[in-house]
Computed example of a mutant assay.
Amino acid sequence: MYPENTFRRCSTCGFTHTHPDNRENEAFNCEKCGYQNHADSNAAKNIRLRYLRRNQPGG
């Protein structure tokens, strides 16, 4: 199972108000910046970004 909202959050601009209209079937369309991609690819980018943020060395 994917972490919550990874399919609806824009991996490009980080549109945080996860608008339900962002996802229609397999297409992802950001209502804020216009980014378009396959919904699974967008979700994978969000999961990757979350992983990288959690695993950054502390400063």
Score class of each variant (00 low, 15 high):
residue 46 N to Y: 02
residue 19 H to F: 06
residue 4 E to P: 04
residue 35 Y to Q: 07
residue 38 H to W: 06
residue 14 G to S: 09
residue 8 R to W: 04
residue 58 G to F: 11
residue 26 E to K: 08
residue 14 G to D: 12
residue 22 N to K: 03
residue 35 Y to S: 05
residue 21 D to L: 06
residue 4 E to H: 09
residue 45 K to W: 08
residue 18 T to L: 00
residue 13 C to S: 09
residue 17 H to G: 14
residue 39 A to Y: 01
residue 46 N to R: 03
residue 45 K to I: 11
residue 20 P to K: 14
residue 8 R to Y: 10
residue 16 T to Q: 09
residue 26 E to N: 08
residue 56 Q to A: 07
residue 23 R to M: 09
residue 35 Y to W: 13
residue 2 Y to G: 02
residue 14 G to K: 06
residue 29 N to P: 00
residue 15 F to D: 11
residue 8 R to G: 05
residue 34 G to L: 06
residue 6 T to R: 02
residue 25 N to Y: 03
residue 1 M to D: 14
residue 57 P to Q: 15
residue 35 Y to R: 07
residue 58 G to S: 15
residue 30 C to F: 02
residue 9 R to N: 02
residue 25 N to D: 14
residue 7 F to H: 11
residue 21 D to N: 13
residue 8 R to K: 07
residue 20 P to W: 12
residue 41 S to W: 08
residue 56 Q to W: 04
residue 5 N to E: 15
residue 31 E to I: 08
residue 12 T to C: 03
residue 45 K to Y: 10
residue 13 C to P: 00
residue 49 L to N: 13
residue 38 H to D: 15
residue 30 C to A: 08
residue 5 N to K: 12
residue 17 H to Y: 08
residue 49 L to K: 11
residue 23 R to A: 11
residue 50 R to F: 01
residue 59 G to C: 09
residue 20 P to R: 15
residue 42 N to E: 02
residue 30 C to I: 01
residue 52 L to M: 14
residue 29 N to L: 14
residue 59 G to I: 14
residue 32 K to D: 12
residue 43 A to P: 00
residue 6 T to F: 10
residue 8 R to M: 05
residue 22 N to E: 09
residue 7 F to I: 05
residue 36 Q to F: 02
residue 49 L to M: 08
residue 17 H to F: 09
residue 35 Y to P: 00
residue 30 C to P: 01
residue 16 T to L: 07
residue 23 R to N: 09
residue 4 E to L: 13
residue 36 Q to S: 12
residue 46 N to W: 04
residue 3 P to Y: 10
residue 15 F to V: 00
residue 40 D to E: 05
residue 9 R to G: 00
residue 59 G to V: 14
residue 2 Y to A: 13
residue 45 K to R: 15
residue 36 Q to L: 03
residue 56 Q to N: 08
residue 31 E to H: 12
residue 20 P to T: 14
residue 40 D to A: 05
residue 32 K to E: 12
residue 26 E to M: 02
residue 5 N to R: 09
residue 3 P to E: 14
residue 50 R to L: 05
residue 14 G to Q: 11
